[in-house]
Amino acid sequence: MSTATVRVGVGRMVRRLGGHGWLFRVCLGVLVVFVAVALLAPWLAPQDPTVGDFADTMAGPSAQHWLGTDQGGHDTFSALLEGARTSLLGPLGVVAFSSVGGIAVGLFSGWRGGRVDAVISRVLDVLFAFPSLLLAILAVALFGKGLGAPVLAMAVAYLPYTARLVRGLTAQEKTRPYIAAYLVQGHAPAYVAVRGLLPNIAATVLAQSTVNFGYALLDLAALSFLGLGVQPPTPDWGAMINRAQSAVLAGQPLSAVVPVMAVVVAVLAFNVVGERLGERGTR
């Protein structure tokens, strides 16, 4: 029965996703391509982007380097493909941590209500006041550069968005009669909250997480641009933009423009998909 459930669920989801218009479908396609590229990057990349050829720096597009090279002679196309891995893995970590934490906090707060809810809401308000980037920079200062510290810091900074959304939805959904019906059946409140209520608000929460993904990608790219995130030679879109500064000044902006385009397209696609999923959820 469980396999049948899964099959029906996936089929229904695909049919549902098809019914959002061409923009949604294009953006979803873009996201699928990005994820595929990230997964297959080592096999797709024509050259090793960590190895620079100093005899061939800041070159324009050619048969050998499709998108040219940067000031260190690294192949921009290969770096773009490999960079998709770290550039998408970071936001994925942020979204995963912030969603799990946010759902837990929001569900608990909204379900309990009263004083517990008031205290948690004020704590979330305080967290809201911290700019995510500042928190991430603070974490880097404390724990060192790399992907781990900023991702964790940003997960904490993004948690309130999901938590507040889940809290509001929970408080609203909790008054619906089916919740009372569950309680009347003798179920434990924790069970009713997680198995009964959560599936009903999951679509909206998923939409928020998708939008969060776009913002996290942008923030992490900014952090890498500042040189605080992923360290060279690991390819990363933000770091690529940072290193391409001298190339831009030298009149060869291609190695900067390419990762910028990748960031913009990815964030845009995530926002469109997330927004449409949200409309679906609230309808």
């Binding site: 619906r176 089916y178 009372a180 019906a181 009964g196 599936p199 009903n200």
Partner: peptide
């Protein structure tokens, strides 16, 4: 309609 969880 309201008393039975619509997604289960």
């Amino acid at each position: 309609r309201a008393g039975i969880n619509p997604v289960r």
